[in-house]
């Protein structure tokens, strides 16, 4: 199957592999511990694991955009901040 029209590159392939791995991981987690672990965190409303992943990914996207828009530093720093942010979301949200 010719997929050249999608103009794949290794960085974008790795990016999507990472996203799909996260989603598959959430599926496995849900299988192991069903119910989504709902809880009320610092945002003062109920979130499940899926909500927390969504908040983490969306936040990570905006952290990277803000980094690109406001600084000239290496983008890896934004990735590091995003990982810290995701850990905080899964711990406190």
């Amino acid at each position: 199957m010719d997929l050249s029209w999608m103009a794949w590159t290794w960085p974008t392939a790795l990016f999507f592999i990472a996203i799909f791995t996260m989603i598959a991981g959430m599926g496995v987690w849900e299988y192991a511990v069903p119910g989504g672990s709902p809880r009320v965190g610092v945002l003062r409303f109920e979130t499940t694991r899926g909500d927390r992943l969504f908040i983490s990914l969306l936040g990570a996207a905006f952290i990277h955009l803000a980094w690109l828009g406001f600084t000239d530093m290496e983008l890896w720093w934004a990735t590091v901040i995003s990982v810290v942010y995701a850990v905080a979301v899964f711990r406190f949200v």
Binding site: W5, M6, A7, W8, T9, P11, T12, F15, F16
Partner: peptide, 8 residues
């Protein structure tokens, strides 16, 4: 996904 590929 294609749009993401184009964007870089």
């Amino acid at each position: 996904m294609t749009v993401v590929n184009y964007s870089v």
